[in-house]
Design a protein around this nucleic acid. Structure first.
Lengths: 137, 137
DNA sequence: TAATTAGCCTACTATATTAATAGGGTATGC
DNA sequence: GCATACCCTATTAATATAGTAGGCTAATTA
């Protein structure tokens, strides 16, 4: 299941991508427009800022704005920051690999084999889809 | 994330698919072989039996056995029984659809658009992969 | 420079789900 | 008729998610 964190994060990114001239938008504005808990959104935007997707401006007239061109923001990167691994199981993860405790040989494991295929196809979509594709800009 | 329930269920299915002549296998045998908690596995096999993937035989010499040919068992069906929806978000689910509370128009929703693509590609894999493909039998 | 604005940061809590455990019940077969 | 092995319900522990609370700090504007 996709977490609300990721869902809200993607919605906020598309909202900001649609702004012209990178005008800062206040958290409260996005919160109201997208029906997202203000404080929760605040922490999500903070994460996106720390990972160099967003910039922020303090004080009056401040807010968040997008740093890169939407077409240069791969959804794979967004997913990994907000959601974590793209694969459904750690033993097939490229960026968050972990061995299964119960599984002696992952090359012989049916689950591993299946989930590796799913990861490949999902990853291809996330890599080939940019923020620009999602917000029509 | 894939639940252990699904992971264990798939492992048990492949184990049973490899048995010749549909000889019943005891829960304890699978539990030891695959390093799965016996009681947890018990409930998983029960679910698979109730959904007509497995048959069971009580008493001495009893156990579980597979009912259909492994090549006729789509992983999509297994996933839906054990894991639930294949999509990452209810609003794009074909079998477990739910509207998002916060989203006024899902056709305009970036998350919806992205997740629909991911569901399509995952579903295709789960539909085209059978138990026979996973256990080499 | 003082007041206001709006992001920054830490900590806490409520809820739900998952994973596992416990314990007894019931049908089967030798 | 007794041992075997599946059947079923209930409970609990651990974990992650989602949301809340409250104060701090930097920037802006008058």
């Amino acid at each position: 299941m996709l977490s609300k964190k990721t869902k809200y994060g993607i919605k906020a990114l598309t909202y900001l991508a649609r702004q012209e001239n990178r005008t800062p938008v206040q958290i409260a504005t996005i919160s109201k427009s997208e029906n997202i808990s203000l404080k929760f959104l605040e922490s999500i935007l903070l994460t996106l800022r720390k990972n160099d997707f967003l910039g922020s401006k303090k004080g009056k007239g401040g807010g968040y704005y997008i740093l890169k061109e939407p077409k240069d923001i791969q959804m794979a990167a967004v997913m990994r920051i907000l959601e974590g691994p793209i694969s459904m199981i750690p033993c097939v993860s490229l960026n968050f690999y972990e061995k299964c405790e119960d599984c002696p040989d992952e090359n012989a494991c049916a689950v591993h084999k299946l989930m590796a295929q799913v990861r490949d196809s999902s990853l291809e979509i996330f890599k080939n889809t940019t923020l620009a594709d999602l917000c029509n800009c």
